[in-house]
């Protein structure tokens, strides 16, 4: 008898979510097998890479190698976003509203909404707008953003169990997609999706952010939660988890000691720029293998490497 390669039987599929508008709108999801197992199923929409843009100049918050490529536009989110699209090939832009942090600049929801609208108007790729994970402030800010950007089909988040009602209602009213964020726990991820469903948010409007750890700093936890998420979705027909996965990894990778130490501070670790880029690219590839559909990344070189790997694996 000839040898037959054992095949996983799948009973479910990931649902599709479309973001943005016009020619550059993107569809995510649709997988019928584990990530890149194209010999067992299909991956009709390959994973996408968005680039991170802050609404203020990150200055010393960013390691020098990460700031270098954008230092001419840092502080001008519109120009920064355009540069990511035109020069670095970003397939989407993730505007992080760092200035709204109540423990920092504490910018008003109106100011943040005005910035988001300017950026949305200046680019043709989908726009992700992310808050600072402060539950109360994010609820106010993202509500204002949703209203100001009516018609753009933004992706707004993070939406958490304590503010899903306010942000979910705004997303429904102004037709945006939301990112449901839970703390590295597959049961809690499922619960939040159920609650959003009860509120009336359709599955086609939800991406799942399982909380992302960077290489060496918790990546393995994110990885195994994403694996469990996909197993439940694809082999247990768990329809509340059959949603595309969103990973905000740029920040997690570049904030760690190994990325911030300069060549003078840590000569034994090799070149800082090369190290940071590789750490970001390796984190990205790991997340893709666990099921990531939309990655938010920081360094243009890491983005380039990640996109070429997606191309090779998904065709």
């Amino acid at each position: 008898m000839a040898f037959e390669i054992p095949k996983q039987i799948y009973s479910g599929a990931i649902k599709t979510v479309s973001i943005g508008k016009g020619d550059k709108a993107i569809t995510l999801g649709g997988e019928t097998s584990y990530p890149f197992y194209v010999f067992e199923g299909v991956m009709p929409n390959k994973p996408r890479v968005a680039m991170e843009v802050w609404d203020k100049n990150p200055g010393e918050d960013w390691a020098a190698p990460a700031l270098e490529p954008v230092k001419d536009v840092a502080g001008d989110p519109v120009a920064w976003a355009q540069k990511c699209v035109k020069e670095f090939g970003a397939e989407a832009v993730a505007l992080i509203l760092v200035s709204t942090d109540p423990n920092g600049d504490n910018a008003s929801p109106e100011a943040a909404a005005a910035t988001a609208k300017k950026v949305a108007e200046a680019i043709d790729v989908p726009l992700i707008v992310y808050g600072t994970s402060n539950m109360e402030k994010d609820a106010e800010v993202l509500k204002a953003v949703a209203e100001a950007c009516d018609g753009f089909n933004l992706i707004i988040g993070p939406v958490q169990d304590k503010n899903y009602k306010q942000i979910g209602a705004a997303a429904l009213a102004y037709k945006h997609t939301i990112v449901a964020n839970s703390p590295i726990d597959v049961n809690l991820a499922k619960q939040l999706n159920i609650l959003l469903g009860q509120l009336g948010v359709k599955d086609s409007q939800i991406l799942v952010d399982p909380t992302t750890g960077g290489l060496g700093y918790g990546l393995e936890y994110s990885y195994s939660v994403m694996e469990r998420d996909r197993m439940a979705a694809l082999t247990q027909e768990d329809d509340k988890l059959q949603l595309p996965i969103f990973n905000y990894l740029g920040q997690e990778v570049w904030k760690v000691k190994e990325c911030k130490q300069t060549n003078a501070e840590a000569p034994q670790l090799g070149d800082q720029t090369k190290r940071g880029i590789l750490m970001e690219a390796i984190t990205a590839v790991d997340l893709l293998l666990a099921g990531g559909d939309l990655l938010v990344m920081r360094h243009p070189e890491a983005v380039k490497m990640t996109k070429s790997i997606i191309q090779e694996l998904a065709g």
Partner: peptide, 12 residues
């Protein structure tokens, strides 16, 4: 373990 737990398991 046939269905993943969530607090709303009775409602779905």
């Amino acid at each position: 373990g046939q269905v993943l737990f969530s607090d709303s398991w009775l409602e779905i």
